[in-house]
């Protein structure tokens, strides 16, 4: 493994992880709000800065990660910096990183049990655009009334899946959308109107 080619992780792991986590916490607590979660100085190719930051902040030896084919090349980098275990089956993943261009069947990810709905996957989806203020109408916990956010790259299949995911509550997956340094959270409780 060529370490120089891997690229650096967070320059200040303790404080950068904290900052990224707070961004993620705000995003998931207030769905539809687009927050900034800056990543490391040099981000591997094809990966959104915020997605990379989220992975560096939340993954370690205790977590498993599934990467979509497009993002598979980043596996070495994340494995090196976080110690996470890479898995090839969606059902084994605590976290998943994928691009909206290749949205797989999200039904394959783990959605927990009624007794332990927290034993579910967190899915990070890279999207081409992310902008608050117009587009999809979101409502649910964390949102005062409703809020609008435009998320690029999502197709009909995703919205159908999301309806099924919501119906599973309290089971279900949670999603972060990542675009450049921006992040937007979609917990399993959020209702989407197209």
């Amino acid at each position: 493994m060529n370490l120089a080619r891997l690229g650096a992780g967070f320059s200040s792991p303790v404080l950068d992880s904290q900052r990224t986590f707070r961004g993620a916490l705000e995003a998931l607590s207030r769905p539809g709000r687009v927050v900034t979660a800056g990543g490391p100085a040099e981000v591997p190719r094809n990966v959104a800065e915020s997605a990379c930051a989220l992975a560096l902040a939340l993954l370690d030896q205790d977590t498993t990660l599934w990467l979509s084919p497009l993002l598979a090349p980043v596996g070495g980098y994340l494995r090196f910096h976080t110690g996470c275990r890479l898995v090839s089956q969606e059902a084994e993943a605590d976290f998943a990183l994928l691009d909206s261009a290749e949205l797989p069947s999200l039904d394959l990810f783990r959605c927990g049990s009624d007794e332990y709905p927290d034993r579910s996957a967190t899915v990070i989806v890279q999207v081409p655009t992310l902008e608050a203020g117009s587009g999809l109408r979101l409502s649910g916990p964390g949102i005062r009334g409703s809020v609008r956010v435009a998320i690029g790259g999502l197709h009909e299949a995703f919205f159908l899946y999301w309806g099924r995911n919501r119906a599973l509550f309290p089971r279900g997956i949670d999603v972060f959308f990542a675009c450049g340094p921006l992040l937007c959270g979609l917990p399993r409780t959020t209702r989407i109107e197209v």
Partner: peptide, 30 residues
């Protein structure tokens, strides 16, 4: 001491639990 006393691996574990807690309002995450 590390910033915030806890070691980073413990913080990550707790942070992951907090995110799940937010996603499932009122559910107690072990």
């Amino acid at each position: 001491y590390n910033f915030g006393y806890l070691d980073e691996r413990t913080k990550r574990m707790i942070r992951r639990a907090i995110l799940k807690a937010v996603a499932i309002p009122g559910y107690q995450v072990p």
